[in-house]
Design a protein around this nucleic acid. Structure first.
Lengths: 113, 113
DNA sequence: ATTATATATTCTAATATTATTATATACTGG
DNA sequence: CCAGTATATAATAATATTAGAATATATAAT
């Protein structure tokens, strides 16, 4: 069971582990948005955004409701926003190292990347 | 910049996105441990644990100090523990769906899984 | 010096994730 | 019904991550 719980958490983190999906969640943190609106804000391909939304849906991080032609998305549980908030704090606490990490982007650590 | 920030966050989440690494961080949450002790607790191959530690090190989620023969690890910033705590709350809030998700483990969603 | 112990790295095959392109579905207005 | 708009899915090629086996390095003990 302990292990199942960890797999669950890992799955959620996996869903969070993409800049586009983080952007989506951050935009949705300010309120409900249609898929099209998100696409606009992100400035990305329709199909790509839709796929990332599918990932977030699969892990139930977002919910959607259909209104006529459009599909509106929102974050299911504000805890997720809190997690992202914590990450912001973490980022600021380690700004310097973070910048370095972003700069290199290619440290030759085995198995890592 | 906004985008760099999101890449940074995504990278951290990526590092968290594995059950073994979550287990490692949770064990370390209770206090410093040697690589060997972790290996014991996890019941996994030495090389495998070492690789996961390398990932956590690369993202600076853990720090290590060498004492003679051994290497002791600890969590660098307690914010990470808070994140894991929040995930526990999230898990409990959605226990039922979580169980379902773990049960299936193979929903055919495009781009996902 | 030799052997033993603790930990890290390299290599590799299997698997998963990603962006892109093409196509499909669903709803709306005429 | 037909055309148009909004969104989702499928297929695919490029890339990344994973576990496991083999090997390397560093320290300690004899």
């Amino acid at each position: 069971m302990q292990d199942a719980l960890r797999r669950f958490k890992a799955d959620i983190f996996q869903a969070l582990a993409h800049p586009t999906r983080i952007a989506i969640l951050e935009f949705l943190g300010e309120g409900e948005l249609s898929a099209g609106a998100l696409m606009e804000k992100l400035g990305m391909e329709q199909a790509n955004v839709s796929q990332h939304l599918a990932v977030l849906r699969a892990k139930q991080l977002v919910v959607n409701r259909k209104v006529g032609n459009q599909v509106f998305y929102s974050v299911r549980d504000p805890i997720i926003n809190k997690v992202l908030q914590l990450m912001r704090r973490y980022f600021h606490a380690h700004l310097k190292e973070a910048m370095d990490m972003l700069g290199e982007m290619e440290k030759p650590v085995a198995g890592a990347k």
